[in-house]
Computed example of a mutant assay.
Amino acid sequence: MPFWDNARFLCVTLVVVGHGIQRLTADSDNALIVYLFIYAFHMPAFAIISGYFSRPGSPNARQMTRVITDIIVPYVIMESIWTLVQFLVEGKREFNPTQPSWTLWFLLALGIFRLVLPYLALLKYPLLIAVILSVGVGYLGNVDSTFSLSRAIGILPFFVLGWKLNEWGVVDRWRRVANGWWMRVLAVAVLGAWLAVVGGNINLWRAIDLRFWFFYDDSYSGLGEGEWWAGAVRLALIALAVLLTGAVFALIPRRETWITAFGTSTMYVYLLHSFILYPLRETGILKDEHTSAVWLLSVVFACVAISIALSAPIVRRVFRPIIEPKPRWLFADQTAFRTPPEGPPRETRTGPTARREP
């Protein structure tokens, strides 16, 4: 299913671009326009893809083992590396795994999603409940970024939506409808309209710090909007993210392209790109005089190149021990590491993208 691999690589590239231009947004309206355009949907799209390839049934030993090997162990390894890097660069002497460094919050969010999905699946209206939780958590100032809890609850509706899209078979029917040229024109119009809204009101968005609303990690009072209607803003942003994600998905190629193979390396790109961008962000070269449109385009193209480079097979071979560790010595039951026998074909084919979340 090359469509999903293409979608995953596009989303992770947008993540890299967003992180690359973040320091430019303080001094450049053009950079802030691109930043807000991307952040309105790129992590929700990731969560939708992750949910699409998730199963809500009671976890077996193999699935529980993968939560440890795919999420917890890589998180501890990467957090330890980040602690060392920050000590060497900034002199920080604190190792606090309860507060994830930079991009690592999504690993913990995936772990939370996997844990709660079987329980949500028991409920009659899981998607509605996920939306209520996302909107409601913003009113609770004591739910913060510890273990990424506030952010995980904030984007939970997108993960649940992805799972329900698979369960309802919506994507297969939608792909048949979306093949028409009119659907692509409509998708371009939707994205163009959002770009026009962002660009035409950039001073307003800067004044109210709209970008922080797209993080889903702070309470409404922490965002400066403690009024009762603040939840309606998050609800509107959730709807906007779904609309924009659908428009982007309508434009993604369904056939194999030159980027399809890169879609299986999204976790490597996601976890490793921050080590490349970190020195650039800390040296201050992405500020002040380096905020022209030419410099912005240069940073965007450089981020695309980083995504492609980190998708190379050699990167996977070198960094597999820390990104996809197999700590067999941790487990009493070694059968969880064995490849399960092939059974009859499933009704819904998940393809190679089911192996890893983005």
Score class of each variant (00 low, 15 high):
125 Y>I: 10
108 L>W: 06
101 S>A: 13
126 P>G: 05
111 G>F: 00
111 G>S: 06
119 Y>Q: 09
92 K>N: 15
116 V>K: 07
86 Q>K: 14
95 F>V: 01
87 F>L: 12
106 F>T: 02
86 Q>E: 09
123 L>I: 14
117 L>F: 00
119 Y>S: 07
86 Q>I: 10
104 L>H: 02
90 E>W: 13
126 P>M: 05
97 P>I: 04
116 V>F: 08
104 L>R: 09
114 R>Q: 12
98 T>Q: 12
97 P>G: 03
125 Y>T: 13
114 R>F: 10
102 W>S: 10
106 F>M: 06
120 L>H: 05
93 R>W: 12
105 W>G: 02
123 L>W: 11
96 N>P: 00
94 E>T: 03
102 W>P: 13
108 L>K: 04
117 L>G: 00
117 L>E: 01
111 G>T: 01
115 L>K: 07
109 A>W: 02
97 P>K: 09
106 F>Q: 01
88 L>F: 14
110 L>P: 05
112 I>K: 03
100 P>H: 13
98 T>I: 15
98 T>R: 13
107 L>D: 00
125 Y>K: 14
96 N>S: 04
108 L>S: 08
86 Q>W: 02
118 P>R: 03
109 A>Q: 04
115 L>S: 10
112 I>Q: 06
107 L>W: 06
93 R>S: 15
112 I>D: 03
124 K>C: 10
108 L>G: 01
117 L>S: 03
92 K>T: 15
89 V>K: 09
113 F>N: 00
118 P>T: 01
85 V>Y: 03
118 P>V: 01
95 F>M: 05
119 Y>D: 08
120 L>C: 07
126 P>F: 02
118 P>A: 00
92 K>L: 15
106 F>N: 02
120 L>V: 05
117 L>Q: 04
108 L>A: 07
93 R>Y: 15
96 N>E: 05
112 I>R: 07
102 W>M: 09
105 W>M: 07
109 A>G: 08
112 I>W: 10
103 T>K: 04
88 L>H: 14
115 L>N: 05
98 T>F: 13
87 F>C: 13
123 L>M: 14
125 Y>C: 11
122 L>P: 04
116 V>M: 09
85 V>T: 06
115 L>W: 11
108 L>H: 05
100 P>V: 07
113 F>M: 01
108 L>E: 02
110 L>Y: 04
84 L>R: 12
111 G>A: 00
124 K>V: 11
114 R>M: 08
114 R>I: 04
91 G>Q: 04
94 E>Y: 06
123 L>N: 07
94 E>R: 08
99 Q>S: 10
101 S>G: 08
89 V>G: 01
126 P>Y: 02
103 T>M: 07
86 Q>D: 09
103 T>I: 13
95 F>K: 02
105 W>I: 03
90 E>P: 02
108 L>R: 05
120 L>E: 02
91 G>K: 06
114 R>D: 12
123 L>T: 13
